[in-house]
Simulated scan of single mutants.
Amino acid sequence: MTSLLLYLAAALAEIAGCFTFWAWWRLDRSMAWLLPGLASLALFAWLLSLVDSDYAGRAYAAYGGIYIVSSLLWLWLIEHRAPDRWDMLGAGICLVGAGVILFGPRGS
């Protein structure tokens, strides 16, 4: 459960941080938006490093599914655009993949 909360917090930090760059570049916002964005991206990296995993690559791969679902929630809640059925299908496939990575049996 702790890993899931860390993944969700990391996703929020990463998406918010990336959105500040999007807003600056694509929405013509002030460069001042980049400062909290950089802080948010640093927070993302720190949160992801707290996930209990023996290998960084495996933690990052499993995080990918959470990130995709969180991005679609951002699309819906912040950008006011509902994900379509293809978004939902793709997110479901990614969550299954993340589950296989996280919970697959490992040899010793």
Rank of each mutant, 00 (worst) to 15 (best):
Y7W: 13
F103G: 02
A23F: 03
G99E: 00
G17K: 03
I68K: 05
A32W: 14
L72M: 09
L35E: 02
D28L: 09
D87Y: 02
V69Q: 06
I78F: 08
C18R: 03
L38K: 00
S53L: 09
H80D: 06
V51T: 11
L72C: 03
E14N: 14
V96R: 05
G65Q: 01
Y7I: 12
L8N: 05
A61H: 07
A39G: 14
A56K: 13
I93H: 04
R58Y: 09
F44I: 09
L77A: 15
L48T: 07
G97I: 07
V51C: 05
S30H: 04
V100R: 04
L34R: 00
Y60A: 14
G64D: 10
C94S: 15
W24K: 10
G104D: 07
L102T: 14
A39V: 15
D52M: 01
S53F: 01
L95A: 06
A10G: 01
Y67F: 12
L27G: 06
L8F: 13
S71D: 04
R85A: 10
L27F: 05
V69M: 04
L27I: 05
M31Q: 03
L102H: 12
G92N: 10
A39I: 11
W24C: 11
Y7C: 06
G90F: 06
I66D: 02
A32I: 11
L5W: 12
L27T: 00
M88A: 14
I78H: 03
D52I: 07
R26C: 05
D52A: 15
L47W: 04
E79G: 01
G104K: 12
D84A: 04
Y7A: 05
W25A: 13
W25C: 03
W86T: 08
P83I: 10
R29A: 09
R85P: 00
W33Y: 12
F44C: 08
W24R: 08
I68N: 00
C18I: 11
R29T: 01
W22R: 02
L102Y: 07
H80E: 03
I68C: 00
L75D: 05
R81E: 14
A13D: 04
Y67A: 12
L47P: 00
L77Q: 15
L75A: 09
S40P: 09
R29M: 06
Y67T: 02
R81N: 09
G57V: 08
Y60M: 11
P83N: 06
L75P: 00
W22V: 13
G104S: 06
F21G: 01
I15T: 02
W24S: 12
L77W: 15
F21H: 05
S30T: 15
W46E: 07
T20E: 03
G64A: 15
G57I: 08
T20I: 02
L73A: 15
L6V: 09
G37P: 04
Y63N: 06
W33C: 01
M31S: 08
I15M: 12
L77F: 14
A62R: 07
D54T: 14
W46I: 14
W76A: 12
A10K: 03
P36G: 10
L102P: 03
L34T: 04
L48I: 10
S49H: 10
A16R: 02
R29H: 10
L48S: 07
S40E: 09
G37K: 07
R58T: 13
V96K: 00
L41K: 01
G17H: 00
Y7F: 15
Y55M: 14
D28R: 13
S30A: 07
L27A: 06
P105V: 06
